[in-house]
């Protein structure tokens, strides 16, 4: 949390009212980019649950729902707050974190435009992503979630279930929750039986996510 506050001060030294902006950052905002079927919307919900389990007092998961189909670009947001009540339903414009389920989405200009200065990106990619035209101060972590899912045969009818490894990686990068909390929430959500395999992929991602 402290880390985020510091980032924002740096970021807003050019601006005039930086103190207020630091205050408003009591709420941490996470932006999910995925494609229909990659389970990004469930990820936003699970993240809210895990943060709450960890002790954040308020969370909200906001899926942007329109006419989704497999493969169409999907957006979802999660806002989590340690002390302050979250009283907004609007979409996230300046996220603190961005979780990108499919790096091919970055080829779409309007999606690339959502990357703002100072954001921390966690991307599903086996290789470092192309950062040409990225704004300043962007920190990038990569995790090969698709690779992990294929290796562990963690698939649904038409592809890998990416949300679990991506959330595992997010937990490692941010420290907002650990694998223990993840297991607890997944048990509650999906029942005891299915948790084991979920935790295998989550652990793989937790251990393999790296900064580039």
């Amino acid at each position: 949390m402290f880390f985020i506050g510091w980032l924002v001060i740096i970021k807003n030294q050019k601006g005039k009212s930086w103190i207020k902006l630091v205050e408003s950052k009591e709420i941490i905002e996470i932006f999910f980019h995925g494609r229909g079927g990659q389970t990004a919307i469930t990820a936003s919900q699970l993240l809210a649950e895990m943060a709450y389990e960890k002790g954040f007092i308020d969370t909200i998961a906001i899926p942007i729902i329109g006419a989704e189909r497999r493969g169409a670009p999907i957006m979802a947001f999660t806002k989590i707050s340690e002390k302050k009540q979250i009283r907004t339903y609007d979409s996230v414009k300046e996220p603190d974190y961005m979780i990108i389920f499919d790096t091919s989405l970055l080829d779409i200009p309007r999606i690339k435009d959502t990357i703002k200065e100072g954001v921390i990106i966690i991307a599903n990619s086996p290789i470092p992503i192309d950062t040409t035209d990225f704004p300043d101060n962007v920190k990038i972590y990569i995790v090969d979630a698709t690779g992990i899912c294929i290796k562990r045969e963690f698939m649904h009818s038409s592809g890998p279930i990416l949300n679990i490894p991506m959330l595992g990686a997010f937990g490692k990068v941010t420290g907002y929750y650990d694998l223990e909390i993840m297991e607890k929430v997944l048990k509650k959500e999906f029942g005891e039986k299915k948790v084991e395999k979920n935790m295998i992929v989550a652990t793989d991602a937790y251990e393999s996510v790296k900064e580039v």
Partner: peptide, 10 residues
């Protein structure tokens, strides 16, 4: 619809 119906909160 959606703003409350599909977002999740405690």
């Amino acid at each position: 619809g959606f703003i409350l119906s599909h977002t999740s909160k405690p």
